[in-house]
C-alpha cells in the first residue's frame, strides 16, 4: 500500500500531463525517452489513459447549471449597475481601450456613439484640465496612462475575491499582470509615490491580513 511519504520519481510524476499534452517541450522529450526503455512507465501511461477516459465520461454526465442560476446573477447585476466615467467609455468606443467592443457584442449603435462623442466633447470643453498641450485628450488615452507605484503581491491561500477587491479599492490598486509564480503585479494610484508613501502603502498591504508577500516593482507607465 502506498504511504503518504512515498514520492514518485520525476518521470512518473509527469506522466499525466504527458498524456494530456500539457507538458513543456523539454519535459515531454524527457518522458518520451524514458518511455522507450521502461515498460513500467508504459503500463502507467496506459492506465492513465483509461482513468482519463473514465474521468471525462464521469464529468460529462454531470449536466449543467439550471436557468435559474443566471436569473439570480442577472438580478444582482441589474441591482448593482456600474458605469464607467464618460471619458473612459468614449475611449473604448473609439478603440483606445483594451476592452473596445470591436463590434463583437451587439450592444453598440452608431447613433448612440455619435451622441456620446458629442456629449464627451462638450464635457471636455468645459473642463480645461482635460486639455493637453496639443488639444483634446481622453481620460484613458496613452499619454494619460497611470504611472503609479507598482508592487508584486502574493495573496494568502484562503483569500477571497471580495477581500482582494476591497483591498484594491481601498488602495486604488489595479492588477496589471499575473499571476506569475503566485505573484500579481499591481499598480497603485496614478502618480508615483515617494519613499514615505511607499512605506505606508506596503505597511497597509501587510496589515491587510490577506497579503502573504509584497515586493516593490518600480513605477507603471
Amino acid at each position: 500500500m502506498m504511504t503518504k511519504t512515498e514520492l514518485p520519481n520525476e518521470i512518473e510524476a509527469l506522466l499525466p500531463w504527458y498524456a494530456t499534452g500539457r507538458l513543456s517541450a523539454e519535459d515531454r522529450a524527457k518522458v518520451a525517452i524514458a518511455l522507450e526503455s521502461r515498460e513500467d512507465l508504459s503500463l502507467q501511461l496506459r492506465l492513465i489513459e483509461q482513468d482519463r477516459e473514465a474521468a471525462i465520461l464521469l464529468n460529462e454526465d454531470l449536466g449543467s447549471p439550471g436557468a435559474a442560476v443566471w436569473d439570480r446573477i442577472a438580478a444582482i447585476v441589474a441591482a448593482e449597475p456600474r458605469r464607467l466615467p464618460l471619458g473612459a467609455r468614449v475611449a473604448q468606443w473609439l478603440g483606445f481601450g483594451a476592452g473596445a467592443p470591436s463590434g463583437r457584442l451587439a450592444w453598440t449603435g452608431a447613433a448612440a456613439a455619435v451622441a456620446i462623442v458629442l456629449q464627451s466633447a462638450a464635457i471636455f470643453t468645459l473642463l480645461p484640465s482635460s486639455r493637453g498641450p496639443g488639444g483634446f485628450q481622453t481620460a484613458s488615452a496613452p499619454a494619460a496612462m497611470a504611472t503609479g507605484a507598482q508592487a508584486l503581491v502574493a495573496f494568502a491561500p484562503e483569500t477571497r475575491l471580495d477581500q482582494v477587491g476591497a483591498l484594491l479599492t481601498a488602495t486604488q490598486g489595479t492588477i496589471v499582470e499575473g499571476p506569475r509564480g503566485g505573484f500579481y503585479k499591481i499598480r497603485f494610484g496614478a502618480t508615483p509615490l515617494d519613499k514615505a508613501g511607499l512605506d505606508a502603502l506596503f505597511a497597509r498591504l501587510r496589515a491587510s491580513g490577506i497579503v502573504k508577500m509584497a515586493l516593490p516593482a518600480g513605477s507603471g507607465g
Binding site: 447549471p65 446573477i73 444582482i76 447585476v77 448593482e80 482582494v164 479599492t169 492588477i175
Partner: peptide
C-alpha cells in the same frame, strides 16, 4: 451547492472584474 458556487463566482466577477484587468 454547485449552482450556488457558480452564481457566487460570477457575481464576484461582476463586482470586482475592474481590479483584474491583467489576468493572464
Amino acid at each position: 451547492s454547485a449552482e450556488d458556487v457558480v452564481s457566487e463566482v460570477f457575481v464576484d466577477v461582476w463586482r470586482n472584474a475592474a481590479a483584474f484587468e491583467g489576468l493572464s
